[in-house]
Structure formats: C-alpha cells, structure tokens
Design a protein around this nucleic acid. Structure first.
Lengths: 241, 241
DNA sequence: CTTTGAGTGTCGAGTCCTCGACAGTCTGCC
DNA sequence: GGCAGACTGTCGAGGACTCGACACTCAAAG
C-alpha cells in the first residue's frame, strides 16, 4: 500500500523528495502535533490512521477527521508555515514517510502538480470535516460507529482494528456505555466481533448497510479529487474468494 | 462596516480590484451557489450573513459555517477553479461586493498579500468548521442556539435578527419544537425577545454566558488571523452607555 | 501463580430531544 | 375586511443517550 499523494507526483518531484523522506513508525497513541505547535514535519501514511482531534476547554477531545494513505498530516500548515489547530494522534499501528516542511515547501514552489495535490487534499479534508458537522448533528451513534469502522478499515491492512470501546467513545464524543451497547448489537448481527481492545470486521456489507451516507460521500470525494488508490477496497470492486 | 479582507489589501491591489467590484444586495433566502456549481463570482459581505450548508441525501440541510464581513463566499473554490461543495444561502439582509473569479485569480497570482489573506481566510474557516464538529457532538441545543445568535449578531447591523424558529431549527439540525422551548426560556431570562420571524437581542452578556466556548474560540481565531475589525463588537471592548 | 489494572457488561434513574399532531395568532394580500 | 398561509404555542408518548456505579474478566507484569 502506498501513499496516494506521493504516488501521484511526477518522477522529477519524487526524485527531489525521496532523499528526504524518512521511514517513520506510527505507534499507537503517539501524538504527532498539538494545537499551537509549529509544523516542522509532514507525515505521509503508507498504512495506518492518524486522527485529527479538536480539543475543548474541559479537556475533551473529539475526532474531526481521519487521515490515512490518501492524505498527509500537517500538509496545509506546513506549506503556509502556520501552526497546527488540532491534535494529531496515531490511531492504529502503521508506517509513514516523514518529510521536513522546509523541503516540502521548496518543491511546492516549483511543482504545479504538487500544488494541485495539496489543494485537492485540502478540499477533500474540508469536505470531510463539513460532512462530519452534519453527521454529528443528525446521525445516530450506531450510524457513526459504522462510518468510523469503515473509514478505518479502508486505511489499514487486514480486517482487525486495535482499539478499545473507551477510545472509540472519545472519538465519537459519546459515553462508553453507549458504544458498548452498539458494539454488542453489531456483534449479534454478525457484522463485527470484538475482544479486549480489538475489533474484527466480519461482514463489511452489514456495516455499510448500517452506516450513514457520510462514509460514502467522503470516500467518493477523495476518489474524485485524487488519482485512484492502488488497492481499491470498496465492496463494489471486491472479487469472490 | 467594511469587509475585513478587502480592508487589509494594499492600495495597489484595491486599485486593480475596485473597477470590477459590483455592489450586490444580499436578499434573505437567496442561494448564491449550490454544491457542484462552478464558482464564477466571489462575494465579499459588507453587512449580513451567508450560511454554508451541507446537504444530505434526504434533503436535509444543516449549517456548517457562517460567513460575514470577516470573509468571503466562494473564495477557495474561485481561486482553485473548482466547484462548490456546499450550498450558500443568504441568511439576513445585507450588502456585499461581487467580484468575478477570473479577476480575483489574476490579482491573486501577483499579490502576496492577497495570497496570505486567502490562506488566512481558509484557515479561519477550517477552524470554524472543525469546532462545529465538536460542538454538534457535545453541546446542548441551548448552547448552540446562543453561539449562533452571537455569531450572527457580530456580522449584522443593529440588534434585531430576521429569522423564524423553523429556519433556525434547520440551521442547528434540530426540531422546531426544541427551538421554541429554548427561545422561550431565553426570553424568560431576558436575553432575547422575539416576535414572528424576528429576534431582538436584549442582553448580549446573558447570551454569552449561556453559549458554549465555541463562539469565543472561533472569533478569537479570526481575530488572530485577520487584521482587526473596524468596529469591534466584543463585549470586552464595549464602553459604558 | 498471584496481583494489578485495563477493558468490558450491566443496571437504572434521569434528561434531552424527537416526532406527530393540533390549536391559536399574526401578517400580508386580495 | 376578510382570508390564506406562515409562524408560534403546546402537549404527550417515546426513544436515544447520559451519568454514576459496580461487578466481572482477561492479560500482562511481578
């Protein structure tokens, strides 16, 4: 699996960037930046998920967007040389390529393709957040739970997600007991199976049926804006086993 | 009252833009663009509010952001020559300056100040939407009602807002009966007074006390990113009568 | 092998908000 | 002046989610 932004760059740009791309292990729970931090590095996930969290004054943190191999963490802020406005937390184990913001900015000034990609990424991210505004106001916890599982599943390898119900409750901004009830119900339906800190996706189509439209809307947006993923993971394209 | 983006431009840029700035009346309820529309014009509100709405498949529309004299409608899409992703609806009567996207793009290519302002506007808007994600998940209807009233009050002249409870219910994504109850309660407290399709703000400090933190967070963000408003409207800066 | 702590199951009271329904009231228009 | 339509008031049943509490279970560390 590869990063869709890097994959879309012409070879000339890749040649200029690659000497500065550093392999970086995404360790679960690690914070990449806090609100107010200056952005010195950009992370291009290859596998794995990074959550962008909005912090509230009482310490609550809720996910505003999820970034995986379709994007990069810190992109707009790095280019504009600004500070971060959210907290970026590694959600699931994975790998990324790290790049210094200065190098990225250099290449950005001379590469129209990179500029286009940065813009496309920004638009996809904005559309994602915009959709979440509506989603959090209008959709049930079960719908949002399923949307979240699917988004996550798209961005990692395999069908097992390492996360606790408490963690997920924070992401969604609800009580743990509510997550427990929803998870239980989805397990009874055969959509997922979970153990301590681990969720297996058993039947993706059941999740898709129970998720709100927001999952598909955001996904189609990215597909429209960025070159196709190397390994498509939509159910429509999956072959029989 | 003036548009903060235009006010921050150097005189050379203003000279190039002003022949193409057209006075435009913001009429309540008018749609400036729909999702998917090509953006041919950008609107710089002088007084009044435009709501950016996210549309759902079932026809529901919910506000993702509010734009007034601190910003512009269609900015990022016009510069990048992309299509709109939300519906833009005029919320309250007002005036704006309209500018062709092509002209804006021309000046943008040569003016670093304009590029900075566009970036700042984008960051403010993104921060606004991000905050709303959390707000919609965590805050009560009364808190969000107050946040909305304050945001709106900042962007119009006078203390009277022309809007129905049904309209506001749509914006917040809740039932009208809930809005009625909240409005009633705030009127009893002496914060507002309302009649058919009209709300007077009686005691702004009561609204501020009942609003969630999101109002202040977003406002301070814009103040940090853009040059100060001509007519500050924060309670802190108000003088005694 | 035991202990410890993290993760999950469950319960129940209580609150917020939904959803549908209908009655009243104001405004503008004919 | 009266009518139609838009706007607001109110009610009540019901559902979704909160909030605090406590018991249980598993996994890893000692």
């Amino acid at each position: 699996m590869q990063n869709r932004l890097l994959a879309a760059l012409p070879s000339g740009d890749v040649a200029r960037l690659s000497p500065h791309l550093v392999q970086f292990e995404l360790e679960r729970g690690r914070t990449l930046h806090e609100p107010g931090d200056r952005i010195d590095h950009v992370y291009f996930p290859l596998v794995g998920v990074v959550s962008l969290m909005t912090l509230m004054e009482n310490g609550a943190a809720i996910e505003s967007a999820m970034i995986g191999p379709e994007g990069a963490v810190g992109l707009p802020a790095a280019i504009r040389q600004r500070t971060a406005i959210s907290r970026a937390v590694v959600q699931g184990k994975g790998r990324a390529l790290r790049l210094s913001a200065a190098i990225l900015h250099d290449v950005w000034t001379t590469s129209p393709t990179l500029r286009d990609l940065v813009d496309a990424h920004g638009e996809g991210l904005y559309a994602n957040v915009t959709q979440s505004v509506a989603c959090n106001a209008l959709h049930s916890v079960e719908e949002r739970f399923c949307r979240w599982m699917l988004s996550c599943h798209d961005r990692v390898e395999g069908d097992t997600l390492a996360l606790t119900q408490e963690y997920l409750a924070d992401m969604l901004g609800v009580q743990r007991t509510t997550v427990t009830a929803v998870a239980r119900s989805l397990q009874d339906k055969g959509a997922i199976r979970y153990r301590r800190g681990q969720v297996d996706i058993i039947d993706r189509s059941l999740l898709e049926a129970a998720a709100c439209e927001c999952y598909g809307v955001v996904r189609r947006n990215y597909d429209r804006l960025l070159p196709a993923a190397e390994r498509p993971v939509t159910s429509e394209t999956s072959a029989e086993p």
